[in-house]
């Protein structure tokens, strides 16, 4: 076959250019550790990468949301164990009130203790978070959960939920109104008033004690229930955390398999491509030296 002189030069240069381009790409991969990932390089991989990065971001955000809720639950737990302590001491007072031999001054001093316990319960109910929001007021986080003079619930019935998992919305689930049985705090105050009034009749005192006792027993149930609610939520969040970190690992593996280079492959590619270029260069110089003109003297 007839070959033109230009063809020899053209073929050699285009071959060397192609090899140089490959070497440049490979050495870039070797130095960055990342495959050059434009949609063109890997259309399916790019879309997958986008999906995985989105999943990581959302997954991370759910963890942030869970931490925010765990923080509030932590504060609520502290408040509720305080409530339990106060309820414990209050129980002792109620038991001693049931003891028939108390006189008026005994009852008055119990009434004083009860008042300070009531105040303590109000304080605990009005627990705020670091940002100054009442945590047991439902949506009405700017309003005291329990009014210190009327003992009425100041919040609303709403539970502010947030997204803690792809399929779960969770909130604190406890407010000052559900924590205590209906009218418990007001009942304590009513009973204190009767107990500290020297003119109260025996019958009035007996009613004050039995109403207090009934409200107390009911509230013990609701306080326990509130603690259970918080405990359950905390457990759910913890198990979501471990699922979340497992998911994060899977997603990160996906990203890494799409993005990171295989160094063994890259380095051996690089060595091979360099050798190919050297061979091409040497061949070219040798071939271009072959000419009859060298012998025409």
């Amino acid at each position: 076959m007839r070959i033109s002189t230009n063809t020899i030069y053209q073929l050699s240069t285009s071959q060397m250019t192609a090899l140089q381009e490959k070497i440049s790409q490979t050495s870039q991969q070797a130095s960055t550790g990342k495959k050059v990932m434009t949609p063109q390089d890997d259309p399916v991989g790019s879309a997958k990468l986008l999906e995985a990065k989105q999943a990581i971001s959302i997954n991370d955000q759910y963890a942030v949301n869970r931490n925010a809720l765990k923080y509030t639950i932590g504060i609520a737990n502290v408040a509720l164990s305080g409530v339990q302590d106060v309820m414990q001491s209050m129980n002792e007072q109620i038991v001693s009130l049931g003891n028939g031999i108390l006189n008026s001054s005994n009852r008055q001093s119990i009434a004083i203790t009860l008042q300070s316990q009531l105040d303590h319960l109000v304080t605990l109910s009005n627990t705020k978070d670091a940002a100054g929001h009442y945590i047991f007021s439902g949506y009405k986080s700017d309003t005291a959960s329990i009014n210190a003079s009327t003992y009425a619930y100041g919040g609303d019935a709403n539970n502010a939920v947030i997204q803690v998992d792809s399929s779960t919305q969770l909130g604190l689930g406890v407010n000052a109104n559900t924590m205590f049985s209906s009218g418990f705090l007001a009942q304590i105050k009513t009973s204190i008033t009767a107990l500290s009034d020297a003119s109260s009749t025996d019958a009035q005192i007996a009613t004050a004690i039995s109403d207090l006792s009934a409200a107390f027993n009911a509230s013990q149930i609701t306080v326990n229930a509130a603690q259970v609610t918080l405990g359950t939520s905390e457990n759910r969040l913890t198990s979501m955390d471990s699922i979340g970190s497992e998911r994060a690992l899977t997603y990160k593996d996906t990203v890494s398999s799409l993005e990171d280079v295989d160094y063994n492959k890259v380095l051996s590619d690089l060595a091979r491509q360099q050798l190919q270029l050297q061979v091409a260069q040497k061949t070219f110089t040798q071939i271009s030296n072959l000419s009859i003109f060298n012998y025409i003297k």
Binding site: I3, S4, T5, N6, T7, S291, I292
Partner: peptide, 12 residues
């Protein structure tokens, strides 16, 4: 090119 181009050996 191979058909129409120059081959220097041939020209020599």
């Amino acid at each position: 090119e191979n058909y129409s181009g120059i081959n220097l050996e041939e020209e020599a």
